[in-house]
Amino acid sequence: MTPIRIAIVGVGKIARDQHVPSIAASADFDLVATASRHGSVDGVPSYPDIEALLEKVEHFDAVALCMPPGPRHAAALTALRAGKHVLLEKPPGATLSELDDLVALAAGQRVSLFATWHSRFAAGVAQAKQWLASRNIRSVRVDWKEDVRKWHPGQAWIWEPGGFGVFDPGINALSIVTEILPMPIHLTAATLQFPENRTQPIAAELTFADAAGERATATFDWRQTGPQTWDIRASTDDGDLLLQSGGARLTIDGKMVVDGRDEEYAGIYRRFAGLIAARESDVDPRPLRHVADAFMVGRHAFVEPFED
């Protein structure tokens, strides 16, 4: 089978760390070009923007959009109008409404649109979903705490409007929660902590409920040094489940069930190849909707200034 010819638009940290090696390791894809104002990949033709890419590279099939969420919508429209399959890095856009016309355009063009949530492809997530499906869930607790200086060094855009702040990693937790829970939940309360010198939050406390009442809480914090925490706990009538390391490790009632490696982006590209083969799209807005709700109903608190 001929590999899918793909281009990366936006060659930053996530593209270099995850997309480039995952494409290189995949038999389904061949990286033929990049488009970026500041980055490139050795040995791969590079262009300043998606318009130049489309003008100069005649034969390719798909694009992976890895730039910040603000400009991603315009790039996605351009790619879809050109008949390209489109992979959106998470979050899929700066707003929920941006997704509507992308979904409609992809359907009209008969190409695939994939809004990726890489944490859903962590090793323990699928089995956690299966285990919870038939159980009565009493409570869910999320602790997602990391060091922004380690994971987003010098990325000023992440503190600007549309950059999401602590919800950039926090949305990964929400993508797992919305995947593994058998019932829908909605946000009921939130407190967002904003550094005095930033326009996006550095920490957040969230409370969620379902039809039966309050069911889940989450703490997101970007100020944690030392060991990093990416944990989701679920208490059920039949025992307790714990996802750690961002979903890579699954423990049930203290017994290790899954202890996997980081192969999330390999899973993303397998899924994208399957979508392209079937001419289907996969766009789940639920994690982004929870973030939007937090900004809508959350109480804003101000904390000390933050400097990189």
Results as ranks from 00 to 15, higher is better:
Met1Glu: 10
Met1Thr: 05
Pro3Tyr: 04
Arg16Asp: 05
His19Arg: 07
Pro21Ile: 09
Ser40Val: 03
Ser40Gly: 04
Val41Gly: 02
Asp42Asn: 09
Gly43Ala: 12
Pro48Glu: 13
Lys56Leu: 07
His59Thr: 15
His59Ser: 15
Phe60His: 02
Leu65Ile: 15
Pro68Asp: 09
Gly70Gln: 14
His73Thr: 15
Gly83Arg: 00
His85Val: 03
Val86Phe: 09
Leu96His: 02
Ser97Cys: 11
Glu98Phe: 07
Leu102Lys: 03
Val103Phe: 00
Ala104His: 09
Ala104Leu: 11
Ala106Phe: 10
Val111Gln: 05
Ala115Met: 07
Ala123Ser: 07
Ala128Gly: 05
Ala128Ile: 07
Asp143Tyr: 01
Glu146Cys: 09
Arg149Gln: 14
Glu160Val: 13
Gly162Pro: 03
Asp168Ser: 10
Val177Tyr: 00
Ile180Leu: 04
Leu187Thr: 08
Thr188Asn: 09
Pro195Tyr: 11
Pro195Gln: 14
Arg198His: 11
Thr199Phe: 01
Thr199Met: 12
Thr199Cys: 02
Ala209Cys: 11
Gly213Glu: 07
Asp221Gln: 03
Asp238Trp: 00
Asp240Thr: 10
Gly247Lys: 05
Leu250Glu: 13
Thr251His: 06
Met256Pro: 08
Asp259Gly: 15
Arg270Met: 11
Leu275Phe: 05
Ala277Tyr: 10
Ala278Thr: 12
Arg279Lys: 12
Glu280Ser: 13
Glu280Ala: 14
Pro285Met: 06
Ala292Phe: 06
Phe295Asn: 10
Val297Lys: 08
His300Pro: 01
Ala301Val: 14
Ala301His: 04
Phe306Trp: 12
Glu307His: 08
Glu307Ala: 12
